[in-house]
Structures are given as C-alpha cells and as structure tokens.
Amino acid sequence: MAKQHITTTINGEETEYLCEPQETLLDVLRDQVGLTGTKEGCSSGDCGACSVMLDGRLVCSCLVLGVEAEGKTVETIEGMADGDELHPLQQKFLEEAALQCGFCTPGVLIAAKALLDINNDPTETEVRYWLAGNLCRCTGYDKIIRAVMDTAADMRGA
C-alpha cells in the first residue's frame, strides 16, 4: 500500500512524514523523525517505555498508528526541557538518583509529567498507580516515586 503523507505537530514544531498505514507512531518517531528518546520495550503496551503525549493524552506510542497523528500534537521526551532548562522532574530525577540504566526513564518522565499536569499534590498511592504502566526493572520504584512527589511539592511551593 502506498505511504501516507502525515502532517502533525511534534514538540511544538510542525512536522511532515511519510509512513506505511500499519506503521506505529513509535516506529515513525524513531525511524522517520529521528526522535529515538522514545524507547521500545515490548511493542504491546505493557512496559510504558514508549509513552508520549498525543493531543494532551498519555499514550503508548506502540499502540498508536503513525497515521493517527495527522493534525494532532505529539509531545516526546525530547521536548520536555525548555531549551537548556531541564523540566523540574528531569532535574529531580538527577538529584535523587531516580534512574539507573535510564531506559525506562523517558517514558516514566512523560507519564509523571502527565500526572503532575492534572494533579499537583498526588499521594504515594496515586503516583504508584499512575506509573503502574511504566515498568522499571532497576530501581524498585522507590526513588522514582519519591522524585515525583518531591517535584510536586517543589512545584506547589514555587
């Protein structure tokens, strides 16, 4: 089948790409657009490493087709920092050693930001259930949960 021409907005920038109808948004981001910060861990929506925001909604980009991004906005880890200014979550993850291998980190950060955007004072349980779709095999989640809650506290104080 012929490739589809898609126009979308990725990290605030209008972007065009050609993709096969069956190609996932994850593959498009990584292979066509060159944004490899979004990771592939399972391709079945179980690990959350490919989490991105699509029109303000948290999705696994492996479960979205590239063609579905037509006319929508996509936010990936590459767009999280503001120029050379890290997002408070990114900064807190570094300060509190909330990553080890770093592979799940982009997806975790995207998901955590989505939570803080709608709830600036989550309980530990809320953070744990919100991030239950983002597997991390290194940290045991402890420092991730703390970093998210500490960021929320800082942002409330700011």
Binding site: L35, T36, E40, I77, Q90, L99, G102, P106, L109
Partner: peptide, 23 residues
C-alpha cells in the same frame, strides 16, 4: 556524596543512545 551523574542529562532528555538507537 550524591553528585549528579555525568551521563544524567543525556538519560533524562532522550539524548542517550541505546542499542537500537543507532542508524
């Protein structure tokens, strides 16, 4: 001490290159 890891910014911004990221 709890220094910021030297590869940290790469890993929270998506710049770090893992096995499948090279073309």
């Amino acid at each position: 001490t709890r220094t910021i890891r030297p590869d940290g910014v790469d890993k929270v911004t998506g710049r770090a290159m893992y096995g499948a990221d090279l073309t």
